[in-house]
């Protein structure tokens, strides 16, 4: 690798002259993008997982509640008329 690349036009600190330069990363593109890609992929995975888990959990619990309510209503309906038929 040569010395520090020229900082480009005045006022801009962008270290790359073109998009293809940026992607190539001075020949190290494969390594750099492999790292950043894996990090991004992992981050998306570990962020989405608890969201799905939460949905599944809420669905599961609400089904249990419904079942309990239905059972309670069945048990009570003969005795109590206030159970709204649910």
């Amino acid at each position: 690798m040569g010395p520090l690349s020229d900082p480009g036009p005045k006022g801009s600190n962008m270290r790359f002259d073109s998009l293809s330069d940026f992607i190539a990363m001075g020949g190290h593109g494969l390594y750099v993008w492999l790292c950043y890609g894996t990090v991004m992929f992992t981050f998306i995975l570990i962020s989405i997982q608890p969201v799905f888990k939460r949905r599944q959990l809420l669905r599961e619990i609400s089904q249990i509640h419904k079942r309990e309510q239905a059972q309670a209503a069945n048990g009570l309906s003969s005795v109590n008329d206030e159970s709204d038929g649910k």
Binding site: R15, G26, Y31
Partner: peptide
Amino acid sequence: GVIWGLAFAPQDYQQGNSFRIIYVH
């Protein structure tokens, strides 16, 4: 941080652009 590290931070004089991996490592 990623944009700064990938596009604006200077490259290392020995390691070149592979140095940018430091920003996630």
